[in-house]
Write a protein that binds this DNA or RNA. Sequence first.
DNA 1: ATGGTTGATGGTCAA
Length: 267
Amino acid sequence: MSDPLRLATWNVNSIRARTDRVIEFLRRSDVDVLAIQETKVRDDGFPVAAISDLGYQVAHHGLNQWNGVAVLSRVGLDDVQVGFPGMPGYGEPPATEARALSAVCGGVRVWSVYVPNGREIEHPHYQYKLAWLEALARYGTEALAADPALQMAFCGDYNIAPTDADVWSVDYYLDKTHTTPPERAAFQAVVDAGYADVVRPYTSEPRTFTYWDYQQLRFPKNRGMRIDFVLASAALAARVTSARIDREERKGKGASDHAPVIVEFGG
DNA sequence: ATGGTTGATGGTCAA
């Protein structure tokens, strides 16, 4: 009924600085669909030709040098949606940001989401982060109410470590964003809406992370966080056959501070 | 090792 699908999500921290790395990743990983976050470029600056040469269609949404999301697919790229219904903006008056984009690829609606960072607990950006996730959960609920058999995945950088096991040091984050109870509750609300973390069952070893700060030798010391996820609806989650984090991609000169997360779905 | 990272930008801000 469905074809097998290999899907990845990756915060690249600038598509222009990472074009060669992305191309090399596509070659080696052989993914059908790649959700990208933090392209940090307007649509007219995205390296579409270099990606097209590899056989991938590109949908990108970027308004300026911040944020920016894309979906790359070699199994079709239909019904592209920019943002989700009810997605909040930031500031006064609220300005829409380039933080969500989706397309139907190989029968699956794949979202690339870049959840607001939150900056500091007392910063307005923190409340924005919570409101943004609340709206995402609401959209997810409504989508499944309309079609319980929907195959949909929210892939991206959530800027939240859902459990204490997902950070290198609980103490370090006590007075910072990413591990506070309201953030974790906001993340859990998306899960509870019907979208499971399909990677964790395959990556349960201690200190398994997807992000390591560039500073303080965080990567060599494996002092990171697990903040990048593929959250899949039940009909899609039932098809998962394997998942992994491409930690090798974080190594060497010119790496993003995030590693790609890869999920394979059976037919 | 008295430092401390990267990217977009051309001021600093953001992560």
